Computed example of a mutant assay.
Amino acid sequence: MHFQWLTAQLPTDEMLATVVMDASRDTESGDRAVAARWSELRRSLDRQGITREMAAVLEEQALKPTRASGPHGRLIVASAEGIVMDRLLLFPPRKDEAVLSVGPDVFALAREADDTVRYLLAVVDRTGSDITLYDSTSGAVGGQPHRESVEGGHDVLNKIRGGGLSHKRIESRVEDSWERNAEAVAGELDRIVGERRPDLVVITGDLRAVALVQGALGAQAKDITEHVSGGARNNGVNGSFEARVDDAVEAFRVKRRSTAVERFQQELGRGAMAVTGIDRVIDALRKSQVEELVISDAVAGPVSSLAETKVWVGDKPLELSMHRDEIRKLSSGDARARRADLALGTAAAQQDAGITIVYGDAVDLTDGIGALLRWDPAKPSGVVDNG
């Protein structure tokens, strides 16, 4: 699963502090509990060499309430310039963690992206639509969803009883108005999908208007659109409709994950476009060959099961190896040891690879990690298998 919408917000060549913590405040002692968790994270960052200025900015942010209810987590990223990301997590992490490194903790971002479905809700009637772009996790702390309304401008909207030519002409004008308004809504949805790249479009409202809008959508938007019944413009909050939207979002989340896992299993079974095990994954990353990393829940962390494993890296993100001498051949700079989870995550982001997290025993991953490949290593680079 690709998450450029997250990584694009962050510098990759600056020292960043990535904090993943339980931000739940549901008890009377909630504020004290969060403060205690932050104190532990602050001590960890101090040991890693964080500056006082960056630590102070992080502390101020971490102690601010999220205003979210129920158990939840928080992902905060800070640079020397200040806070660059602060997002809610659907669930508290198993363990809080703070990492100081060049570039972000990519596996932490992958965890957030795995939780998140960015969806566009379009509530339509025969005059237009109210459109809202949501993150299923509630998105940035303190942030607001993007909202806009579209009005078609064609106002012959109601059919009349009766007969004769006059009646038929009015009916024809009404149908034409509905279609033109639907085309205006569809055009706006197409534009937003192209610009904002949501994962899913949820459409609801007047059934006739829904059908007309869906029929007028371009291919890109149509492919990701799901109809959920029960919503209406100017109808206020409807709990049963919200539950149906939540179900649609969760179904999309599960399908997205299972699609990548099934493809990985098929390719691994063929012995062609997939590999597993840290050595083979590192080799594929070094060649910019990885389309999608597939990692276990334990590898995703926090704390990653690969955190204690060290790999050798050079001056560039793709200069990595399990062997120091190999880096000396690959890089003009000195070889240095780095946490495997951070090094592999950085290399994946560098080549615009996606990351899918596997839960339970859905697939057997050596070292908890595998990769779907862009091209078959048994064939020359760029050769496409059409069979």
Rank of each mutant, 00 (worst) to 15 (best):
L6E: 00
A8G: 11
M15Q: 12
V19K: 02
D22T: 00
E28H: 14
R43H: 14
S44Y: 04
R47N: 13
Q48N: 08
T51I: 06
M54I: 08
V57G: 00
K64E: 12
R67D: 11
E81P: 01
V84C: 15
V84Y: 15
R87Y: 13
L89Y: 10
F91Q: 12
R94C: 11
D96S: 13
V102I: 11
G103K: 09
L109F: 09
E112S: 09
D114P: 01
T116K: 06
V117A: 06
Y119A: 01
V123R: 07
D130H: 13
D130C: 03
Y134H: 13
S138Q: 13
V141M: 01
P145F: 14
V156P: 02
V156W: 02
N158L: 04
K159I: 05
I160H: 08
G163R: 05
R173V: 02
V174N: 05
S177N: 08
W178K: 01
W178E: 01
E179S: 11
A182C: 05
A182I: 03
A186T: 00
G187H: 12
E188G: 00
V193K: 01
V201W: 07
V201H: 08
T204A: 05
G205L: 05
Q214D: 12
A219S: 07
I224W: 07
T225G: 10
V228P: 02
S229E: 07
N235L: 07
G236F: 07
S240L: 05
E242D: 13
E242P: 04
A243L: 12
V249W: 09
T259W: 03
T259I: 02
G269V: 04
R270G: 10
G277M: 07
D279T: 15
I282F: 04
L285C: 03
E292V: 06
L293M: 07
I295C: 05
V303M: 09
S304H: 14
S305A: 13
T309H: 08
T309I: 12
V311F: 07
G314D: 01
R328P: 01
R338F: 03
R339S: 15
Q351R: 12
D352R: 10
D352L: 06
A353N: 06
V363N: 15
T366C: 05
T366H: 11
D367M: 10
A378S: 14
V384D: 14
